[in-house]
Write a protein that binds this DNA or RNA. Structure first.
Lengths: 331, 331
DNA sequence: TTGAAAGCGCTAACAC
DNA sequence: GTGTTAGCGCTTTCAA
């Protein structure tokens, strides 16, 4: 790595002159600036970010803690985070908690070592189930800035980005009802998450609005992936239904596939919808209509909030809770 | 952030005493060590990694450049990288090139600013198609250490981890043949990648070995996702086949789903296999048998190679090319 | 118009 | 057994 010192030596000037020349300070002669810049270019000089960080206490780096990178939703949020962060001149130090509270705590330890200006987190499912947010409380006490996304929690006072889970499922359910459906199966493999109750409420709210009685037997808990196929199969074989809504990213694809196997004659009559994106929707045929969470936008917005918070030096910040609009994509 | 200086002041000792006490140097009195450690614990002292990095030129951070985080394969590799890196005491600075050479170059710029000890990369498809590896050559000239994975290239001399693409597809094809199949559709949405020719060779090699004539009409190019469904549909409707092998992560799921729609009577007789993992295989029903790339292991191995290379101070390194074994998982 | 010096947080050689 | 000093790469104030 080329350093200022090396440049200074080669040019027979002082380090501070080189530093100022490169930042176009107006107390350096044009001629000197030119020489300095040329050599810097030739030797491919890059300022050392560690030194900058040490000096200024600003690292232009955001920490990111993701519960599960194999979940396409989180992968897409990460995509949005990276895109926006780079656009704004920030890098990302990424950790995957793998849904474990301990791993999440370790991640925060790593991030809290002076290398980030703030972090963006969606808590692990274990953290949510055990309601153990002490590490986030600690971060707050240490005045470390962070933004929560997706799995947000009321107990933590900070900036938050999520979709309106209840409304998203409400809208999708109404969409099914508008298609004349009323016997709607409800599929969920995220019963271990706090957002699942919001989504269920949205479902029930839509049923109630349209005077459809909810039927507990129509609500399938698929949280255990080992038994999910069996659960769906048994439902399909024994119930009279005309639609299915999945409140996670996978169940709709599974459901449709099993439907084709066990009640192929029904395929044309049953409408399935789930959370998805343009790409995963096409894994099914016919492609599934889907609830677009706009995961990329969630990531982008989280970065915007984070940067806003970082710039904000006030002692009494007013935190924001942003809800990203979802939409039903009919294909 | 608590610093050594603050601890020193509170304890009325010098900064170096605190530093040594915390690292258990044996020229510090037991009593002093105890006092120092207790206070450090109480104030939640964490050494500043930026300062450590500046001082020692060692950051214990690995750069990672991934072409596409929405691809489950890369997501899983990243998972393996993170897992192994954390285990070995390294953090990861992750960049997504989004299959663009320019973004990849920018990513390397970011990473080359003194904050990483080396980087792990799988090049963007654009980089491979345009055969433009100058930025990696540059990295080599600057003596920056890196490991390539999956999309490895002979022209670059460095450590590499991949699967044996030809063998993986050869094995899977033979597996189909062993089931009595001979009219095998070949599905690929990765015709823009260098590895696709290896995979195709594996397919042809297996056919040749078993004296099956290859039929070009059976080889479907699905690289354009917009036309993929149509291409498959038209093939299914007009050809006589008894199996399908997908050399990417999606096509097999699509193929099976379209098969159920357009030739449901064939579903029981046609065997489909593709690259996948335990989770994505279950998106289909019946779950698909799959070629397990052991993506997690690829990531882990890449980290091992990277760390080995970092520790290796020799001027004339002997680079390794590791092939991770794949296996056919029959479900 | 340029340079010297201090300091960000840390470690290590050397002195006391 | 403990402290002083220098230095990693950089910016910035102040002096020349």
């Amino acid at each position: 790595m080329t350093t200022l010192k090396q440049l200074a030596k080669l040019l027979n000037v002082s380090v501070s002159t080189v530093s100022k020349a490169l930042s176009d300070a107006d107390d350096i002669g044009e001629e000197t600036k030119k020489r300095v810049k040329e050599l810097a270019e030739t030797l491919n000089y890059k300022p050392n970010k560690l030194a900058l960080g040490l000096k200024s206490n600003v690292t232009n780096t955001l920490g990111v803690v993701i519960p599960d990178i194999l979940n396409p939703f989180f992968a897409e949020v990460l995509y949005g985070i990276q895109k926006q962060a780079n656009k704004k001149g920030y890098d990302t130090l990424v950790c995957i908690s793998n849904e474990s509270t301990q791993t999440e705590i370790n991640a925060l330890e790593l991030l809290k070592q002076g290398r980030i200006d703030g972090f963006i987190i969606s808590p692990a499912s274990e953290t949510i189930q055990t309601n153990n947010f002490s590490h986030l409380d600690a971060a707050k006490n240490e005045r470390i800035k962070f933004v929560m996304f997706d799995r947000v929690d009321n107990k933590i006072e900070t900036d938050k980005v999520s979709i309106d889970d209840q409304k998203a499922v409400f809208d999708a359910t109404e969409w099914l009802i508008s298609k004349g459906k009323s016997k709607i199966a409800y599929l969920s493999n995220i019963e271990n998450l706090n957002i699942s109750s919001d989504r269920r409420n949205g479902f029930h709210e839509a049923l109630a609005k349209h005077k459809i009685d909810p039927n507990p037997n129509f609500e399938l808990n698929l949280t255990n992936i080992e038994t999910a196929h069996k659960t769906i199969e048994s439902f399909i074989k024994t119930h009279d239904f005309d639609a299915a809504i999945s409140v996670d990213n996978n169940s709709a694809i599974m459901f449709q596939s099993l439907l084709k196997s066990f009640r192929p004659e029904l395929v044309d009559q049953i409408t399935c919808i789930g959370f998805a994106n343009a790409k995963t929707s096409k894994l099914a045929y016919p492609p599934l209509s889907y609830i677009n969470q706009n995961a990329t936008k969630i990531g982008e917005k989280a970065v915007d909030l984070m940067i806003e918070r970082i710039k904000d030096k006030s002692d009494n910040p007013s935190y924001k809770q942003i809800k990203i609009a979802t939409d039903v994509v009919e294909v």
